[in-house]
């Protein structure tokens, strides 16, 4: 034992500092995370509270939980139908966003079309509510109100700019030498894009998909105006617990928790890509 212990002492000296550094780091992280987590935890707690517990003062952290709010959610709104609609709309909008966004981002990155990039960003900056009336008129004309295609098309305004802007940086990072090498070997431009660049940008694609999925999943205003009974999406469920003379916090938080859950699970599952995607997209690696 002692024979092995000797070198360890030296290492221990170093690891002391390391431990201290890590502790401080985690402490700082915890400090930053706290406010965000608190909101989430509070939502979760509230979803298990009765009406009286909601407004209790001082706020309750330990209480007898109730599942009533969750039953209410399923009773008051066709939650499963809405969930299916939400999945159809946000997944299709994200996929379609990738189909159009990937080539767009690639071309912007390779041919430095910054004007185009800014034009796309502008569409993202305009308050969405200003699109709604023209869209509504358009979709009434072609009879698309309360259809999936109308919702999916409008959700492209959420997903596409996000995908394009995140991916521009990814494509810029891919050394042109790689592409040139492929072309010398007889690959076409399209071939280079599909076989070299897109696979290399995979982490970025995953990250931007998740982001656009989340934004599309949470969008309320488009569905409010353009969806009807058949295609209504999930965020509407939250609002059904707000009415004149009554705000049912239990129902709201239960619905919000249920809506956040799939996104949360998805995010955790693909967290690795997400962090990489953020780091790469924000600052050129």
């Amino acid at each position: 034992m002692s024979a092995i212990a000797q070198p360890r002492v030296v290492r221990r000296h170093r690891s002391w500092r390391k431990v201290l550094n890590t502790t401080l780091l985690y402490l700082a992280v915890a400090l930053v995370i706290c406010p965000f987590m608190f909101i989430f935890v509070w939502m979760l707690l509230s979803s298990f509270k009765t009406g009286v517990q909601q407004t209790a003062w001082p706020p309750l952290f330990i209480f007898e939980p109730t599942l009533k709010n969750y039953f209410d959610v399923f009773q008051r709104v066709p939650f499963v139908d809405y969930a299916i609609n939400s999945v159809i709309v946000s997944v299709s909008a994200t996929l379609l966003g990738l189909v159009f966004g990937l080539p767009a981002a690639y071309s912007i990155a390779r041919w430095r079309q910054s004007k185009l990039a800014i034009a796309i960003l502008t569409s993202r900056m305009v308050p969405w509510i200003s699109f709604l009336l023209p869209w509504y008129l358009l979709f009434t004309r072609v009879g698309w109100v309360d259809t999936y295609q109308a919702l999916i098309l409008t959700h492209l305004i959420i997903t596409m700019p996000m995908i394009i802007w995140l991916l521009i940086a990814f494509f810029e990072d891919i050394p042109t030498e790689l592409e040139e090498a492929a072309m010398i070997d007889g690959c076409s431009r399209l071939g280079v894009f599909l076989k070299v660049s897109v696979p290399l940008a995979a982490p970025g694609i995953v990250a931007s998909s998740i982001f656009s999925l989340i934004y599309s999943w949470n969008n309320f205003i488009f569905a409010l105006i353009l969806a009807g009974r058949k295609t209504m999406t999930l965020p509407v469920a939250v609002y059904s617990f707000m009415s004149y003379t009554e705000v049912n916090w239990g129902g709201i938080t239960a619905a919000a928790t249920l809506i956040a859950l799939p996104v949360l699970i998805l995010t955790f599952a693909i967290q690795r890509y997400l962090i990489k995607g953020l780091a790469l997209g924000g600052v050129k690696a």
Partner: peptide, 19 residues
């Protein structure tokens, strides 16, 4: 019968009727 909270109702009704 579509039922919405009042503010959301106003948004929807006003958009649809304007159109």
């Amino acid at each position: 019968w579509e039922q919405l909270a009042q503010d959301q109702n106003r948004q929807k009704v006003q958009t649809e009727l304007t159109a």
